[in-house]
Design a binder for these strands. Structure first.
Lengths: 150, 150
DNA sequence: CCTCGATAATTGAAACATAAAATATTTAAT
DNA sequence: ATTAAATATTTTATGTTTCAATTATCGAGG
């Protein structure tokens, strides 16, 4: 369905307005679907995002501020996300030795284990995106990069 | 900057993974910028979304469920959004005569007035998107439609 | 015209997000 | 060595979202 049909708006002011609405709509569409997968594992998309970042660094620790910088949603309260993950024993946290203001976070074996189960489910879900070709996906990606280029 | 640089992830599993992350990231990027505009008028993006839908119908009223269906964020609690708009006298609400379960909502003159001031600001902001051509914007839009095509 | 399932909207409680203030530490400048 | 500004994180207060439960009404089938 076209964005026109989906949000029942017949006319747009410009291609840019249509694109903006389409991007937000499509991003929500993706996130709701993924949320259903995350829910089975009792985590949120934001928590998954943190775990993915931590795995990328493993076995090195990473500071809270560096996590915040890499998040898809820059406004997330990273401190509290980590609190939640700590309670579930998916991450460890300790004061950074070089800079005692900072806090080092590292993913636990339990956290890595959880991701190992989640990965194939996310990968399987991604097949839903194959309505466009890999080339088209790369084309959109590069146009989005150009769009944001500040 | 490429999404690789923005979220500091060097490798992606597939063009589809990169696209997914890029879409969510870019949608957040857009929404944070627009939020700065909405804030001056003391409304949120969700409230703006409702007002835009109501203006599209004006002077006809529209049911709460129809608003919900057209929202970009389907999970929004439309009832409570309308509560907020009602307090600010931007909308009116009354029981629907044909179906007494339903509630008809309509935008007020004050609401239309607010949009009239906001419009040029949003339009001006949209010029930021002109780093891509109108043709490229339409191309992304149609590929996103194809991507979601369920 | 009565019952039952479906639909429309609202609410309550818990979880979560946001913005601003607070705390602790580092860095840089005198 | 002392102060001031900057940085890293946490907390507080407030507002928003979410999920499930609730209330009210409609419409179809007996």
């Amino acid at each position: 369905m076209s964005i026109e049909t989906d949000i029942k708006q017949k006319k747009f002011r410009s291609p840019y307005q249509r694109l903006g609405l389409n991007l937000v709509y499509t991003s929500n569409w993706i996130q709701y679907q993924q949320m259903d997968i995350f829910r089975e594992y009792d985590i949120t998309s934001q928590q998954f995002n943190v775990l993915r970042i931590l795995r990328g660094q493993h076995p090195s620790p990473i500071k809270v501020s560096d996590i915040a910088e890499r998040m898809l949603d820059k406004n997330s309260n990273t401190s509290r996300l980590i609190d939640k993950l700590l309670v579930k024993k998916l991450v460890d946290r300790k004061s950074c030795p070089n800079d005692r203001r900072a806090v080092d976070v590292i993913i636990t074996e339990t956290g890595l284990e959880l991701l190992k189960h989640l990965d194939p489910e996310i990968e399987a879900w991604e097949k839903n995106l194959a309505r466009i070709t890999p080339e088209e996906a790369d084309l959109i990606s590069s146009l989005l990069d150009k769009l944001r280029n500040s």
